[in-house]
Design a protein around this nucleic acid. Structure first.
Length: 294
DNA sequence: GACCAGGTCAGAC
DNA sequence: GTCTGACATGGT
């Protein structure tokens, strides 16, 4: 198979999009050169000057998967313009992290990954996701120095025990992951494939989606918001973690300790249906500044 | 060695 | 309803 090359969209940067903290299942090979897995496929991709090179990829995989995964059809220039109009204070964050695209990730992987994410640093989340994939998923990519495995399907994890999960260093999250697997398998979807997950959640409002997801033990408002935003294409979601709380307090609440529901209401009124984009620019920016308590 | 990390839950007021 | 400590593990 040959390589598939496109002109890089002006608002897209590969490194920023992968390293901004929205996804965990990739490895950096070199500057602007990555391997990742998604939707049961591996992709070796590089950004060179103003081109994006999808190695060993045909047009049909690009059209059916990667264009959607990298959100390449969306007009980020218009989104930024609207956000800046609503909130000029976003300028710094947007200028610094201008190339972030929100990925359209698969539901089950995103759900489990963000359950794992609680009270963990990103490098460790990545390690656990890679370990679960290596133990239960299919081998998708191999070169001289790395192997990448698909994130396992719900069915592949059907008989996994809490003890198995604890061996993978998931700690107190092990029973949460188990509950998520069981509930996803028990849901009356027509199947456990991505299309049926999407069909199920597409019918739900943002609030109903959060309500449905938080039935899972270990899934609270923050994890449910991340799944809504990063997997279910509900781009008004505004997940509030420690970093977002910090930067919002610093920017808009005079540096004072502010309750999450207050920040949430504030963000909803300000950013409306574009909350998720604002959130991701702010999150990545705050983390790169290593903003600490004032 | 203390302190923190893309939080959540149960139990105490 | 709101607040607090516990929860596993690894990085700084």
């Amino acid at each position: 198979m040959s390589d598939f090359v496109i002109k890089r969209p002006i608002d897209f940067d590969l490194e920023q999009t992968l390293e901004c903290g929205q996804c965990f299942h990739f490895e950096k090979i070199a500057e602007q050169d990555y391997v990742l897995t998604a939707y049961n496929r591996a992709l070796h991709i590089a950004q060179k000057d103003d081109e994006l090179v999808f190695y060993n990829t045909d047009k049909s995989d690009f059209d059916n998967i990667w264009k959607m995964y990298f959100d390449l059809d969306r007009d980020y220039e218009a989104i930024k313009k609207e956000l800046l109009k609503a909130d000029p204070k976003l300028a710094e964050a947007i200028e610094a992290k201008w190339g972030v695209h929100l990925l359209n990730q698969s539901f089950f992987e995103t759900l489990i990954s963000f359950i794992i994410s609680q009270n963990k640093q990103i490098p460790h989340i990545k390690k656990i996701v890679a370990d679960i994939s290596a133990k239960y998923g299919d081998l998708l990519y191999e070169d001289s120095s790395r192997k990448l495995y698909a994130f396992p399907s719900p069915k592949q994890l059907e008989n996994v025990t809490v003890e198995d999960l604890k061996e993978l260093k998931t700690g107190f999250r092990a029973p949460y992951i188990k509950d998520a697997i069981d509930r996803v398998l028990a849901l009356e979807f027509s199947g456990t494939d991505e299309a049926s997950f999407r069909a199920f959640f597409d019918k739900l409002s943002p609030e109903e989606t959060i309500a449905e997801l938080t039935k899972i033990k270990g899934v609270g408002l923050k994890v449910a918001s991340c799944v809504s935003l990063f997997a279910l294409n509900k781009r008004e979601a505004f997940p509030i973690d420690v970093w977002i709380k910090r930067i919002m307090e610093a920017k808009y609440f005079d540096g004072k300790d502010t309750k999450i529901p207050v920040i949430e209401k504030f963000a909803k009124e300000k950013y409306k249906d574009l909350g998720g984009y604002a959130q991701q620019y702010l999150f990545y920016y705050a983390r790169s500044l290593k903003i600490n308590k004032l």
